[in-house]
Amino acid sequence: HFTSQQLQELEATFQRNRYPDMSTREEIAVWTNLTEARVRVWFKNRRAKWR
């Protein structure tokens, strides 16, 4: 589960860029205190939901 702060950060990034690269995902991981893998999976799932 994600905190509302984490989701806000993830959503804001998603609005700007639906396909963040590795370095962007790592930055998000640092800001949100999540692993890069969790961030990558979140984006994958979010893109699926967005379609």
Rank of each mutant, 00 (worst) to 15 (best):
S23A: 15
I28F: 01
N17K: 03
N33R: 07
T32G: 03
E27T: 10
Q5G: 08
H1I: 11
E27G: 07
S23V: 11
M22Q: 13
Q8W: 13
T24Y: 07
Q5R: 11
K44R: 10
N45I: 14
D21K: 05
N33Y: 06
L34Y: 01
F2Q: 03
F2T: 03
R46E: 07
Q8M: 12
F14G: 01
E26A: 11
L7G: 02
R47P: 00
R16Q: 13
R16V: 12
E27D: 08
K49D: 08
R47T: 03
R38A: 14
M22I: 09
H1T: 12
T3R: 03
K44W: 09
R47G: 01
H1A: 12
T32P: 01
Q8E: 13
A48P: 01
R25F: 07
W31Q: 14
R47F: 05
S4Q: 13
D21V: 04
N33F: 07
N17Y: 06
Q6V: 07
E26G: 06
V39Y: 01
S23T: 12
R40A: 08
V39L: 02
T32V: 09
T35H: 04
W42V: 00
A12E: 11
R18V: 05
A29S: 06
T13S: 14
R25A: 03
R38N: 11
E9N: 09
H1R: 12
Q15P: 05
Q8D: 10
E11Q: 02
R46T: 05
A48Y: 09
R38Q: 15
H1D: 11
N33A: 07
Q6L: 06
L10C: 00
E36R: 01
E11D: 03
N33T: 05
I28V: 08
Y19E: 03
F14C: 05
T35N: 06
Q5I: 10
M22N: 06
Q8K: 14
W42A: 00
D21R: 04
Q15L: 12
N17M: 08
M22Y: 13
E36C: 02
R46K: 05
W31R: 15
F14Y: 06
F43W: 02
T24F: 08
Q5N: 09
E9I: 15
L10E: 00
R51T: 11
D21I: 04
F14R: 01
T35Q: 04
E11H: 04
L10T: 00
T32F: 11
I28S: 00
N45F: 13
R25C: 01
K44G: 05
E26N: 12
T32W: 08
R46Y: 02
W50G: 06
S23M: 12
Q6P: 02
W42M: 01
R47L: 08
A12K: 12
T3D: 06
T24V: 09
F43L: 02
M22T: 09
H1K: 13
T24A: 13
R40M: 05
Q8F: 12
W50K: 06
T13I: 15
D21A: 06
P20Y: 04
T13N: 15
N45W: 15
Q15R: 10
Q5L: 13
L34C: 05
A29Y: 03
K49G: 08
Q6C: 04
S4T: 12
W31Y: 14
E27N: 09
T3I: 04
F43G: 00
T3Y: 05
R40N: 09
S23F: 08
V30A: 14
F14L: 01
T3L: 04
K49S: 10
Q5S: 11
S4A: 13
T13P: 00
N33P: 01
W50V: 07
A48H: 09
V41M: 14
L7Q: 07
I28N: 01
L34M: 09
S23L: 11
K44I: 15
T24M: 12
E27I: 11
K49L: 12
V39R: 00
Q5F: 14
N33Q: 10
D21H: 04
W42E: 00
R47Y: 06
N45V: 10
F2N: 03
P20M: 03
Y19G: 01
T32S: 07
W42G: 00
Q8R: 13
K44M: 10
T35C: 05
N17A: 06
W42L: 02
T13L: 15
E27P: 00
N33M: 07
E11T: 03
R51L: 15
R18A: 08
A29F: 03
V39K: 00
A37H: 11
V30D: 08
F43M: 02
S4I: 13
R51W: 14
R38T: 12
N17F: 06
A37K: 13
T35L: 04
K49P: 05
A12M: 11
W31E: 12
E36A: 06
K49T: 11
R47K: 03
F2P: 05
Q6H: 04
K44P: 00
E9G: 10
W42R: 00
T35R: 02
T35Y: 02
V39T: 00
W42Q: 03
R40F: 07
E36S: 06
Q15E: 09
R38C: 12
A37F: 13
S23G: 09
N45Y: 14
N45S: 07
T3A: 03
L7C: 08
A12P: 02
D21S: 10
W50P: 05
A48G: 05
T35W: 03
V39F: 05
P20N: 00
R40H: 07
R47M: 04
W31K: 15
M22L: 14
K44F: 09
R40P: 00
E11K: 04
F14S: 02
T35E: 06
S4P: 14
S23Y: 10
P20R: 01
A29P: 02
R47A: 04
A12W: 11
Q6D: 01
R51K: 13
V39S: 00
F14A: 01
A12L: 11
R25Q: 02
M22P: 06
R25K: 01
W42D: 00
R40V: 05
A29R: 03
E11L: 05
N17H: 06
R16W: 10
W31N: 14
Y19W: 11
R51A: 12
V30E: 14
M22E: 08
A12C: 08
F43R: 00
R46P: 01
T32A: 08
S23D: 07
P20F: 03
A12S: 11
E26C: 11
R25W: 04
F2R: 02
N45P: 00
R25M: 09
E11P: 00
E11W: 05
H1V: 11
V30R: 14
L10F: 01
R18L: 04
T24G: 05
N17T: 08
W31C: 11
V39C: 00
A37R: 11
R18D: 05
S23E: 14
W50T: 06
E36F: 04
F43H: 00
K49R: 12
V41D: 12
Q15H: 10
W31A: 15
H1Y: 12
A29K: 00
R51C: 10
R38M: 13
R51N: 11
T32M: 13
S4K: 14
M22H: 11
Q5V: 10
V41I: 13
W31G: 09
E9S: 12
T13Y: 15
L7H: 07
A29V: 01
R18E: 05
L10A: 02
R40I: 05
R40E: 07
R40C: 06
K49Q: 13
F43S: 00
